[in-house]
Design a protein around this nucleic acid. Structure first.
Lengths: 344, 344
DNA sequence: CTGTTAGCGCCTTCAA
DNA sequence: TTGAAGGCGCTAACAG
């Protein structure tokens, strides 16, 4: 039994016997209003179920208190965790979030961005799709409101960004595996076109190199980032004449494919081989005796993102002031049972 | 280098040498405008990077083309799939989605709903938190815009809803397990306070009863819906003097806990026991040789939800017309390897 | 302290 | 076919 249209400030004013300005001042705690009138206004507002009309307020004030959140791929548990944290933090700061899932489709990203411009979001948080669309670079550089990139940077684009130090991430994996004595180490890296994948590989390679080990280039599996690709790559590695003693999967989808392949082949972790993955997906608990992972600090990334963006928002209508900030946060190694010392 | 504030319709009009009315008519394809002026207007709009101001348009037109999506728990993969589908369908229909995650916290739900009222969302899609807040019933009954419940209904509330037929879901599990000869069947059901849990249990019980089997009440594990609770319940069942031959976990979090417990105990599926779960979480592929599940038709639910809501939106400003529609969709059994015939 | 008033940008009559 | 003008609900300046 949905009801009549919502009351306006005028009706509240009439019921309270005051002017609209008094209502506005009372509800926004701006300007001075006597206790008596405040009480009358609040009572009237409650009685009528008054809710200020956000569009009218925005039109007048120039701020929407809306943030746009453009996510490359909601199905990735890591991004989902970022979304959860960002939504919570934004909401706590008084901002609503318009969620847009690009699903790695550049066209959807472009349409969504145009919509966020129309909505006059006060700021936009972008996890960009891997492939861009024509004009994306310029569109993001000329954003009429503050914007910030998360997780993925776009080469050559001057825009605030918060990312993981992915070279360090690869190095952490390298050092851990080297400590355990592994020499035949394989990587399922996804696409080499992608900067993050390259950085993680570089970190692994240089980490091993600094310990005197050379990464066998034939054990580097390159393809896309899908679970199916991870599964196929893992199958190839597991059938290898000299099977690797450890496999590093550089992303959630890939590691899921890897684990599925290992299960299908009936191999046992870590007896038959060690596995190290990135992030902490919900299913990490299914791997006995626990998944060794390199985690990205998702909560810290979300906090840094929201606070950086909101500070830009309050700095002024545009983010022109100062250079673009590129913030890198450090990953951490979490050792569990899926990696073990190699038998000699 | 974010740029100047966005141009208004006036600046487009001035550049094109026409009036604002002509610009509006051109861009909205309403009214008649000569080809010549249309071209000039479009050129001017493109040149200036004009994007209509959504707040101004909403204020004038009374419609925001925004849908509110209030989700009880984003961390549940089933809800996440619904969110993905709903976002995609809404976006395709020209609506933006404000995402709100309640995280099963009634207070957050209440705050979010108030915000959606202020935003004057054209419609709201609600997966309600299990616990309500004082006044929720009334607030939802008196919603000033069309609203629709998804997955969970609220007892006594007259509002459109789209849910799974959970009794049928329980019955499907029952019939499958009975076909395989199972008699000692356990259930990890979550909280009996929750209607869905009760319906699924009822379905299981009646399904078994109709085959002449009585469900052993001591094998019904009741607690909350967390992974930890599922794990604890599973541990109790697995240590049972007479271990059940099959376990039915009625929700994603619970089944994850169950699988973890089985892995920890070193038991093998389906040799040591059969497992049947609900929904298709991303990690279903990790269970060899495949998880037998009862799936909820998430895509169909999303489609029905969005189309029902949007039809209410276009019916008129309120959803008063007609009775509340309660739509139930049917679950389906997907047989894989985690369930097997009992050895006799 | 309180009230009156002028727009914010847009769409939609209504006149020309 | 085109343009001029009013007003959606709200806030901020200003007047009393």
């Amino acid at each position: 039994m949905p009801a009549a249209p919502l009351p306006t400030i005028h009706e509240v004013a009439r019921l309270a016997g005051v002017s609209v300005a008094t209502v506005s001042k009372t509800l926004n705690r701006s300007g001075k209003v006597s206790e008596l009138l405040q009480a009358r206004v609040n009572a009237a507002a409650r009685k009528l179920g008054y809710a200020p009309h956000a569009s009218a307020r925005s039109l007048r004030s120039g701020a929407t208190r809306i943030l746009g959140l453009l996510v490359a791929d909601l199905a990735n548990p890591y991004f989902l965790r970022l979304v959860e944290s960002i939504e919570r933090l934004s909401s706590a700061a008084g901002y609503s979030v318009i969620l847009c899932n690009s699903a790695e489709d550049p066209e959807r990203e472009e349409r969504h961005l145009a919509m966020l411009l129309s909505q006059r979001a006060d700021g936009v948080i972008i996890i960009p799709t891997r492939r861009g669309w024509s004009g994306r670079q310029a569109a993001l550089a000329d954003l009429p409101m503050p914007g910030i990139l998360v997780d993925r940077r776009i080469e050559g684009l001057e825009l605030d960004s918060v990312t993981t130090d992915n070279v360090a991430l690869g190095r952490l994996a390298a050092e851990h595996l080297d400590d355990l004595g592994h020499r035949r180490i394989a990587v399922i890296m996804g696409s080499p076109e992608h900067q993050i994948a390259r950085h993680r590989l570089d970190g692994l390679r240089s980490g091993l190199a600094s310990r005197g080990t050379t990464l066998d280039e034939r054990l580097i599996e390159k393809d896309n980032f899908s679970e199916a690709a991870g599964h196929a790559a893992a199958m190839r590695l597991l059938r290898h004449a000299q099977r690797p003693t450890a496999i590093f999967a550089t992303n959630n989808h890939l590691s899921l494919g890897l684990l599925r392949a290992i299960a299908e082949r009936g191999l046992s972790i870590p007896d038959d081989l060690s596995v190290i993955a990135v992030d902490e997906p919900p299913w990490a608990g299914l791997v006995r005796p626990g998944m060794t992972i390199v985690t990205q600090p998702s909560e810290a990334i979300a906090q840094t993102t929201v606070s950086t963006l909101l500070s830009r928002v309050s700095e002024g209508r545009s983010g022109v002031e100062g250079e673009a900030r590129s913030i890198q946060l450090q990953p951490a190694l979490v050792v569990r049972g899926s990696t073990a010392a190699i038998r000699t």
